[in-house]
Amino acid sequence: MINPKKIFKLALISMMAVLILAGCGGEKTSGDGKGKDVLAQIKDRGKIIVGVKNDTRLFGLKNPSTGKVEGFDIDIAKALAKEILGDENKVQFKEVTSKTRMPLLQNGDIDAIIATMTITDERKKEVDFTDVYFDAGQSLLVKKGSKITGIQDLKKGTKVLAVKGSTSAINIREKAPDTTVLEFENYSEAFAALKSKQGDALTTDDAILYGMVDEDPSYELVGGTFTKEPYGIAVKKGNKKLVDELNKALKKLKDSGKYQEIHDKWIKN
């Protein structure tokens, strides 16, 4: 006679196996595109969604008169869209900050980040980067005539302004441990705080600071650069096909002279 308990156990195991297989199969056969790599999704929808800054003069800044975002990163994204999809207009821009760009990428709200993002070993654990598309270095911005002439002047009693989620905030604490660091949501807020004398200096990449000088020439960069900040395009980890496609497109832009044309249009220092 067959033991009823054994029959029950076998039935339970069979049911669990069916549920597990159904769950696994469901993800692979989903019709919402989640089972595809990001490059395939981009080509299917016919556009790439890129996270860009809206508050960073020269790289990504919203023009109040047109409502459009303009800058080096914007033009690079358009040129990449033309190389990959055949049309520079096949790109959709979504605003990000240093704090929000990684979560938006991980959530699938954007396909790539082109937003003055420094390639670091720590970030490589979370995302994949393309080759370097811009070389920057961290520096200091001060009001002309300031007693601060370089990082050596950032001592106890001085205040330095930075942006949340940026490598700049981390670096300045290491390079000038006695100074007080105040962090803001974005560069516009940080620069406004410097203008209202909430701090003695503002720190971020020199490329971004040049944009602030372009906005208000009564400020200047001092002390040269004290870090290397190579910018890369970030994509969700594991998307090698997209990284390869972006790198191939970047190379074409550099070989054709288009990259230099975009660089010279925005970066004049």
Rank of each mutant, 00 (worst) to 15 (best):
Q152D: 06
K125E: 13
K124S: 14
K28S: 13
Q152N: 03
D75R: 00
H263P: 03
V243Y: 13
L105G: 02
E215F: 09
A115E: 01
S65R: 15
I267N: 14
I170D: 10
D135K: 15
I208T: 15
T130C: 15
G25N: 10
N63F: 03
S98T: 12
G224R: 07
A112T: 15
V52I: 14
I114Y: 12
G35C: 12
V38D: 05
L141I: 09
V96P: 06
G31A: 08
N171G: 05
K252A: 05
D128H: 12
G46R: 09
I262Y: 14
S196I: 15
K28P: 08
S166A: 13
I13G: 02
V222N: 01
L61A: 08
K43D: 04
I148S: 00
G157T: 10
L19S: 14
D32A: 05
Q106Y: 07
T66N: 05
A162M: 02
G137S: 00
I119K: 15
A40W: 03
A81Y: 00
N89Y: 06
K258R: 05
Y231E: 14
F184G: 04
G25K: 04
R57W: 00
T179E: 08
K147R: 10
A112S: 12
L80V: 03
S146T: 07
V160Q: 02
A115T: 09
F59I: 01
A22F: 11
V127N: 11
D73A: 14
D73W: 07
A190E: 09
R57S: 05
A11H: 02
G71D: 01
D135L: 11
L10S: 05
I262R: 03
G224K: 01
L58C: 08
G108M: 07
S168W: 03
I42L: 08
K143L: 12
T227C: 06
F93K: 00
G26Q: 05
N269I: 03
V38E: 06
I267P: 10
G35T: 11
E261M: 04
K268D: 13
S256Q: 08
K144D: 00
K36T: 04
S188N: 13
A112I: 15
A193S: 13
R101V: 02
K9L: 10
C24Y: 14
K90W: 03
T149Y: 00
K159W: 06
F226K: 01
L253R: 02
L246A: 10
Y187F: 13
V69W: 07
L194N: 02
G33L: 04
D32R: 02
K265V: 04
K175N: 08
K82D: 11
V142I: 14
G25E: 12
A169Y: 12
D214E: 14
K47H: 14
T225N: 04
N107G: 07
K164F: 03
N89M: 07
D216S: 11
S256C: 07
G60N: 09
E122I: 12
I2P: 05
L141Q: 06
K62T: 15
K47M: 11
Y231M: 08
K254A: 04
I119N: 13
K68I: 02
D264L: 13
E174C: 03
K195V: 06
K252G: 10
G35W: 08
A40E: 10
A81H: 00
V52G: 00
T130K: 01
P230A: 07
T100N: 11
L10D: 04
S166I: 12
E174Y: 11
G223E: 01
